[in-house]
Design a protein around this nucleic acid. Structure first.
Lengths: 171, 171
DNA sequence: GCAAATTAATGATTTATTCAAG
DNA sequence: CTTGAATAAATCATTAATTTGC
């Protein structure tokens, strides 16, 4: 058959990265095109519905072709019965992802949702999430400061990411 | 100039043909070689390893008018492990969390991070994440529009009854 | 109870529109 | 005015969910 089919992807937005490096040439804010659609929901409402659990819920009845669909990460978790939170890699990864996405100080509802999600990969409480953001923010700042001492780093914010419009009123 | 019909923006980034044997035919040249080479740091930072997906389906795209759309493809062609992304609930959960958090069109960097995370729960590629956001955004918008069109704020002024029409079938 | 047929949901592609730069 | 980049809308195609007949 045919072979072919070049799936060319539309939009290589990947390339837009280099632009962000202090060139600041092209900055495309992508203004909301007012298309007369009044129903423009601003992401202000958080609702994060129920996430399902990883293990206790095969999403499909038939075991089906369980190829590598569900390769779960090491369940090593065994939370050390210790006192303080011991984050797993998954948890850290997700938190960093959120941080890089622009989240700095999640509000209660966000924290609740994040906690719920992360709870699937290890024991965690809301305060852990809160503290993590507090600490991470502070330490990133420290790092920046220290690095700016050594090398004259470009003053512009080093976060090359587009702000994810995280509309947090309670910022 | 050629035909402007093919104006698709293919940034064949996913394909990454250059390194491999080129099977691509249409693939818009794209390669704009912006500035010879020096400042051409494009995408180097992204490691697109699994972006190349061998084709395995007679996709006839285009508006092939001459032929009927064969809904049911013939099948003997079981492609071993290569069809479309089938997200797990964990993946969906995280994606929705990000969406609710305000993320609309993540950058390459963000997509990379997300993909990396989500890859722990199942096979996934960057483009899947990209598509998910595109589709989700579009369909949420559709839903909203449709819902606002359909029932225009049902006037319940004269209905003293309790709306117990709990029909949660829409999930 | 199972399996083919049908329908609904949604991932993947293509096309058209928009904005900015030359 | 033209061209290029990015995205949203529209469309195609495949998977899952549901129905139907045995």
């Amino acid at each position: 058959m045919g072979n072919m089919k070049m799936h060319q992807l539309a939009c290589g937005f990947w390339e837009q990265e280099p632009l962000l490096s202090l060139g600041c040439k092209r900055l495309r804010p992508l203004a909301p095109k007012l298309h007369s659609n009044s129903t423009y929901t601003t992401v202000s409402s958080f609702d994060l519905k129920s996430f399902i659990k990883p293990d206790s819920g095969p999403r499909k009845l038939g075991n089906g072709p369980s190829e590598d669909n569900n390769r779960h990460s090491p369940p090593v978790e065994t939370h050390p019965g210790g006192t303080r939170w011991n984050p797993t890699q998954e948890q850290i990864g997700i938190l960093e992802m959120l941080y890089r996405g622009g989240m700095r100080t999640p509000n209660a509802q966000q924290i609740e949702q994040i906690t719920e999600q992360l709870g699937k990969y290890g024991k965690i409480e809301g305060k852990n999430v809160f503290y993590w953001f507090q600490n991470h923010k502070a330490r990133e700042r420290q790092k920046q400061k220290r690095s700016s001492l050594g090398l004259t780093h470009c003053p512009r914010s080093s976060a090359p990411i587009t702000p994810i419009t995280l509309d947090t009123r309670s910022m």
